[in-house]
């Protein structure tokens, strides 16, 4: 058959499309469970890190079952609603209108007391930021926090993931009297109040992104936090 004829070109293209489609579908189907497992384990690892339980990604599944006592969803008024908290994507929920939001809460039992872990989502200099904030059972004092990012500058904004920055949030409180103030991130060693931490030097915009992320995300949970005894 003539290689340059329309018929041959068409047959060749059709055969190629079928072969490529089958190959990609097989690869994707085989690897999908592994990929999902990686992503879920990383999420478990991050959640546990916020209550200062450091485990490897592989070991996070068992540790998660041990420490996390309850996971549930609340609506914007702080009332519990049915659903799978782990599967909910908080970034998508925060974009929805207020009354449709389904906000995940993870309760952990650490050192004999209950901690509430809330996901936070925001934007840094180059891309999205996210993290988890663990609050004591008074819904006010921060027990621990963990942050991650997509593309902040290594050595500058990316330092928000380091223990050294995260531990600055420990013991800070997010309410002043009855008003939610979250935690302000201040430049250059000025932080001394109960709602203030120091920013990363050279990473001011990312640090401000963390501040805004905490303020906006925790605000969604305000009714829930106020309902805690």
């Amino acid at each position: 058959m003539n290689k340059e004829s329309n018929r041959y070109t068409f047959l060749f293209s059709a055969a190629m499309v079928v072969v490529v489609a089958v190959a990609l579908t097989v690869v994707s189907t085989v690897l999908q469970p592994l990929q999902n497992e990686n992503a879920e384990n990383e999420k478990r690892q991050n959640i546990l890190q916020s209550v200062k339980v450091n485990v490897s990604r592989e070991a996070s599944r068992e540790a998660f079952a041990v420490y996390i006592t309850r996971q549930f969803l609340v609506n914007a008024d702080g009332q519990e609603i049915p659903g799978d908290a782990f599967a909910v994507d908080p970034a998508k929920e925060m974009k929805k209108p207020r009354e449709e939001r389904r906000l995940p809460v993870f309760a952990a039992r650490v050192d004999g007391s209950t901690k509430y872990i809330l996901p936070v989502r925001g934007a840094g200099l180059w891309g999205p930021l996210w993290g988890y904030v663990a609050l004591n059972d008074d819904g006010n004092a921060i027990f621990g926090a963990v942050f991650d990012h997509k593309g902040e500058t290594p050595g500058l904004g990316a330092e928000i993931t380091r223990e050294e920055f995260r531990s600055r949030f420990d013991g800070k409180t997010i309410f002043e009297n009855d008003a939610l103030v979250a935690v302000r991130v201040l430049k250059g060693g000025q932080a001394n109040g109960p709602h203030e931490v120091d920013a990363i030097s050279g990473g001011t915009i990312t640090s401000k992104g963390v501040e805004t992320m905490l303020k906006n995300s925790l605000a969604c949970y305000e009714p829930f936090l106020k309902s805690l005894p």
Binding site: S13, M16, V20, A23, L24, V27, S28, L34, E42
Partner: peptide
């Protein structure tokens, strides 16, 4: 087009492998 399809298919496979084994 054939070149692009072959190269993209290979890259997708590499991407899937990385996500599964070098997360």
């Amino acid at each position: 087009i054939v070149q692009l399809v072959v190269v993209s298919a290979l890259v997708i496979i590499i991407d899937q492998l990385l996500k599964a084994f070098a997360y």
